[in-house]
């Protein structure tokens, strides 16, 4: 247990830039956009209306129905979370692709293997980093970013004599909106588990370019399956393997997409259509889909193979 914890901390040390700085940088970017947007509006307003429009705007906010403000904040929070999921998946993708390859490339695997740590522990520590550690760090980064954004908004409201507590802070659905991100991370990890397993296997197995193996081998399988059906079964619209890969990638990139079905039509997500609570429910019920269990079986096999290969492949 102590060893496993040390392995997770080790991953954090190596990838702190990607796991911790990325969410904070995205947060900083949209905070800066808010500030620039405000300054531009303010200046235009001063020039054209001698500052009245902003005054009216703030007055209108004070008199607005809280339900509408809540809905607006929900849309902001859920759509930024959706962006965070997207970025998180990309980061995990490349983290896993390098996780069992980079140390073979620079030879440091020989140092890691000189410690009493089994290959099973090593590979599982990478998987847990991808499914638990990185999402939790991202969640913390997201919350900090949201809070900074809201603080800045509060200051702007105060500058115009409005009360940020009644307008802003009391209208934030903290629990369901941040909960939706956390559950989204869970849905992302579960749906993308076969993808993660495949990436670990590619990273462990590949001698030169894990990316090529990870991306082109499934494509090749997809093409082979398509042409087999087209030529042998005369079925030209069957796209089986591609569809599966596409859906898994879509779920990985966008866990907020409806978790209920497993069809292409249901993978769009519109934050104005659903509240955080509805999202949480649909994602959780989506996890009972039998496709999830087939994916799980694939993931177990792929991770087992990654461990098997890791035992004797020490170089590139």
């Amino acid at each position: 247990m102590k060893t496993f914890k040390a392995l997770l901390i080790r991953e954090y040390w190596e990838h702190r830039g990607a796991f911790l700085k990325t969410p904070l940088i995205i947060g900083a970017v949209f905070t800066v956009i808010l500030l620039l947007g405000y300054l531009t509006t303010d200046r235009f307003d001063l020039k054209l209306n001698s500052g009245q429009a902003v005054e009216f705007g703030v007055k209108a906010l004070e008199n607005m129905d809280p339900a509408k403000i809540q809905a607006g904040i929900d849309i902001f929070m859920l759509s930024t979370e959706s962006l965070y999921h997207f970025v998180l998946f990309i980061i995990i993708f490349f983290f896993l692709l390098g996780s069992l390859y980079d140390d073979r490339k620079d030879g440091s695997i020989l140092f890691w293997k000189s410690l009493p740590v089994s290959d099973t522990q090593t590979v599982l520590s990478k998987l847990v980093t991808a499914t638990v550690v990185a999402p939790l760090i991202f969640t913390a980064g997201l919350i900090v970013s949201h809070l900074v954004f809201f603080l800045l908004t509060s200051i702007l409201l105060l500058l115009h004599g409005a009360n940020p507590f009644t307008i802003l802070w009391s209208n934030i659905n903290y629990f369901t909106n941040w909960g939706a991100f956390l559950v989204g991370c869970l849905a992302q990890a579960v749906w993308a588990l076969p993808v993660y397993g495949w990436l670990l296997f590619s990273s462990s197995f590949s001698k030169r370019r894990p990316f090529l193996l990870a991306v082109f081998a499934p494509m090749l399988a997809g093409f082979a399956w398509y042409w087999y059906n087209a030529l042998v079964n005369l079925d030209v619209i069957r796209i089986g393997v591609f569809k599966t890969i596409g859906l898994l990638m879509a779920k990985g990139l966008q866990p907020f997409t409806s978790g209920l079905g497993f069809t292409v039509e249901e993978i769009d997500f519109d934050p104005s259509e659903r509240t955080g609570m509805e999202l949480i429910q649909s994602m959780l019920s989506g996890l009972t889909n039998p496709s999830v269990y087939y994916g799980l079986i694939f993931a177990v096999v792929a991770v087992a193979l990654a461990i098997y290969v890791r035992r004797f492949r020490n170089a590139t």
Binding site: E14, S108, L110, L115, P116, V117, S118
Partner: peptide, 21 residues
């Protein structure tokens, strides 16, 4: 291997320590 490494250690080559650490 993991059990064995409690009792033995090795330096396989110079400069195999991870660069980032």
């Amino acid at each position: 291997r993991a059990d064995l490494m409690k009792e033995i250690c090795f330096i396989a080559d110079v400069a195999v320590l991870p660069k980032w650490i």
